[in-house]
């Protein structure tokens, strides 16, 4: 499990994550929602050891992230960030190979190659494997990065806004994939999502943040209520039932 105990992070005088205690990484898909500036990405950065907490402790599978070697943690936790700009010209295959770095330190074994093949197959990237990343569409690029995360072969997978800048078809495609990763491969996926309908449709649990604190944490269906969403986003959200599923309407 990924456990945060009384974690606080401040930037300047502003508290971005405020005394959060939370356990993530249960079975299935957990969605992290909340308005911009709620502290979702900072929370990911804290777990992904990119920033150090000012107070509190983060453990992954019982290992304290400040004392455990980074290479060890990279075998149980993979993080896909929001921005993935790469200066060098890499092919899809090169990128996916990097996923094996925590295991092989760059010297690929037969087992590493098997994992790379599996990840490329799983993301249906075989036809693009020798393409350069800057020659791919947004959806293909996102799949390539997810393939890298998959090749890392970790129990926990953190995805920060994987649907950013994708069109309808690719958004659905990525969410279907995330679901399959959880159901077929047993990954514990935690993902930041902005579209609450995607969160409700594809995740098992929703954690809602606001102003650096967790304001709601429940199964998806319980979060999809006007009063809860109002408290999270400070905006009126109508929730209707369509074919037995709650759908939030917030288009105006």
């Amino acid at each position: 499990m990924i456990a945060l105990e009384n974690v606080t992070k401040r930037y300047g005088g502003q508290t971005v994550v405020d005394d959060v205690s939370l356990t993530l990484g249960g079975e299935g898909v957990t969605a992290l929602i909340g308005p911009n500036g709620a502290g979702k990405t900072t929370l990911f950065s804290l777990v992904g050891r990119l920033v150090r907490p000012d107070a509190g402790r983060v453990t992954i599978g019982g290992l304290d992230i400040t004392t455990t070697p980074s290479a060890e943690l990279a075998k149980s936790l993979a993080v896909l960030r929001q921005e993935n700009h790469v200066a060098a010209r890499l092919t899809v295959h090169d990128l996916v190979e990097f996923g094996r770095f925590p295991h092989s330190r760059g010297r690929l074994t037969v087992e590493d190659r098997a994992h790379i093949e599996q990840a490329i197959d799983y993301l249906d990237l075989d036809a693009y494997r020798h393409r350069f990343l800057d020659e791919l569409s947004g959806g293909q690029r996102q799949r390539a990065f997810i393939a890298m995360v998959l090749a890392q072969d970790t129990r926990y997978v953190l995805l920060d806004e994987p649907l950013n800048n994708l069109d309808l078809r690719h958004m659905t495609e990525i969410m279907r994939l995330v679901r399959r990763m959880a159901d077929d491969l047993g990954k514990r996926v935690v993902t930041v999502l902005h579209d609450i309908n995607f969160a409700a449709t594809w995740s098992d649990r929703i954690v809602a943040m606001r102003d650096g604190s967790v304001v709601a944490d429940a199964p998806a269906r319980e979060i999809m209520r006007p009063e809860v969403l109002r408290a999270v986003y400070d905006t009126d959200v109508d929730v209707r039932e369509i074919d037995g599923k709650p759908v939030a309407l917030y288009y105006g």
Binding site: P69, A71, A78, F98, G99
Partner: peptide
């Protein structure tokens, strides 16, 4: 070359 965040994620 992947940048600091990705490198840290890969255990560097």
């Amino acid at each position: 070359t992947l940048g600091e965040p990705a490198a840290v994620g890969l255990g560097v």
